[in-house]
Write a protein that binds this DNA or RNA. Structure first.
Length: 439
RNA sequence: GUGGUUGUAGCUCAGUUGGUUAGAGCACUGGAUUGUGAUUCCAGGGGUCGCCGGUUCAAAUCCGGUCAGCCACCCCA
């Protein structure tokens, strides 16, 4: 038999229930924060992605030429699509534009822990607001997206960094332009590399000063509060723009404190995010031990919309994927799930009773209850066994003697307690059983 | 793209130094039970041992290749 492709998942009912429960929590949270849902094509012109990330990105994409001769690709991320959408109507949209999307993404990479070729992402963006209040809003939102699953500051934290600060610092060292971006890429790798190797790479990049520079960079990365950060910035402090930026840091942290999420925040300039288009605060969410890969990542990208052909529009966004999150929730025993058991299982004692029951089943289902019964008529005991196997909360028993008195028997399958319900008021009576009604 | 490791039923696994029709538990199906469902008892279906090739009188077992899973590197939007 042909099997599914590497890195693609099949979702049987239990996994599907988990996925749906996660999406529901995501969606609910996003609406509470005032974000509107948008959707875009899964298949896009290849150039949408190469324009943003360069032609090399094609190596990591599922791309092909369609029957119309177009070079197309399955989307590896949502950002280019949403930027296109926002750019097309930016003039007419009230700012800030707060949008989100939950969708499948595809990357042609070798699968490993926390990384597949197909995965789902919640993508969140806020356009049109350059102020750090937007960054605070998104960081608080990201934290809430963990809290709704029962994760706490003991489980996850947000490592918060700032590309601007890095650029100011490197500028004070005489490193600008592409060289600065190259150094940032090296900083990004330092965490996973031994010092000697990093030093060697720095030397190639900036020459003889590498050793001093590396020491300064390490001090910046080690800083966990603003005072240490100031000290580590050294000569860069003489730049008035740095003082202004530090004031923004204070503002951001104060806002996050007011929002009650500061305990989740760890200042950590070691996070720089690989991509060139990030422009300000950047952040990544990790399990506190830091062993697994990032749960989420994002930051400010104030120049990307314009770069992709839109108007100048500041933006901040993040994405959270389902794979690492699901792994973590499984590990912490916090996996949500959707109810997969019926409210009622209808049991009937004979053909006449079954006819009446069938009519009621339709009525109860129309009222929103999840109702099951044995499709193939079978013995009474067997029906109860099936009710038990289905995991139904209650059995509704249609018996000859009960119906003769205008009653239906309601049996709680857990406690085995039975009660009589007037047949005429069946729907109304069952509706009063709390927590069993799917509105 | 590179490297390590694993592959026997739906799942978890057993299978002796290569030796008859490849097993168990769980799960699944049917029955014992025609008005009361844990558990129980009986029966049943399901595997060309990932696939292809080689060695051998003989391969689930040894060898090679390949595919897939897992893990790591690369990369990480």
């Amino acid at each position: 038999m042909t099997q599914s492709l590497p890195g693609f998942r099949e979702f049987y009912p239990p996994e599907c229930a988990v996925k749906r429960a996660i999406f529901q929590k995501w969606q609910q949270t996003m609406l509470a924060y005032g974000f509107a849902e948008v959707e875009a094509p899964i298949l896009e012109p290849l150039e949408l992605f190469t324009d943003k990330s360069g032609p090399e990105i094609a190596e990591q994409l599922f791309h092909f030429v369609d029957k119309g001769g177009r070079a197309v690709a399955l989307r590896p991320e949502f950002t280019p699509s949403v930027v296109r959408m926002v750019a097309a109507r930016a003039q007419g949209l009230r700012k800030p534009i707060k949008w989100f999307n939950i969708g499948e993404q595809f990357r042609f990479e070798r699968p490993q822990k926390g990384r597949l070729r197909s995965f789902y992402q919640l993508n969140v963006d806020c356009f049109g607001l350059a102020d750090f209040s937007a960054d605070a809003e998104l960081i608080a939102l990201l934290i809430q997206l963990f809290r709704v699953f029962g994760l706490t500051q003991a489980d996850v934290h947000i490592r918060l960094s700032d590309r601007n600060l890095w650029f100011f610092f490197l500028e004070s060292c005489g490193i600008t332009g592409q060289a600065a971006l190259d150094v940032l890429a090296l900083i990004d790798k330092m965490e996973r590399e031994d010092r000697a190797k990093s030093l060697e790479k720095f030397q190639k990049c900036v020459g003889d000063n590498a050793s001093v520079l590396l020491t300064q960079i390490e001090a910046l990365i080690a800083a966990r509060d603003l005072p240490s950060l100031k000290i580590a910035l050294g000569g860069a402090l003489s730049n008035p723009a740095v003082a202004q930026r530090l004031a923004e840091w204070e503002g951001l942290l104060d806002t996050l404190d007011a929002m009650g999420v500061l305990p989740f925040i760890q200042i950590d300039l070691g996070i720089v995010r690989g991509l060139a288009y990030y422009t300000g605060f950047v952040f990544e969410a990790f399990e506190v031990s830091g062993r697994s890969r990032a749960l989420a990542g994002g930051g400010r990208y104030d120049t990307l919309v314009e770069k992709l052909g839109g108007p100048a529009l500041p933006a901040v966004g993040f994405a959270i994927g389902d794979v690492v999150l699901t792994d973590l929730l499984t590990e912490k025993n916090l996996l949500p799930t959707c109810n997969m058991t019926p409210d009622f299982y209808v049991v009937s004692s004979g053909p006449a009773e079954r006819r009446i029951a069938l009519g009621d089943v339709q009525i109860l289902r129309a009222a929103g209850f999840w109702v099951e019964y044995a499709l193939v008529d079978t013995g009474f005991s067997k029906q109860l066994k099936l009710a038990d196997q289905a995991g139904a909360r209650h059995a509704l028993i249609y018996g000859e003697s009960e119906l003769a008195q205008g009653l239906v028997k309601l049996r709680h399958l857990g406690t085995r307690v039975e009660s009589d319900v007037p047949h005429a008021q069946l729907k109304e009576t069952l509706s009063t059983l709390s927590s069993s009604h799917h509105a």
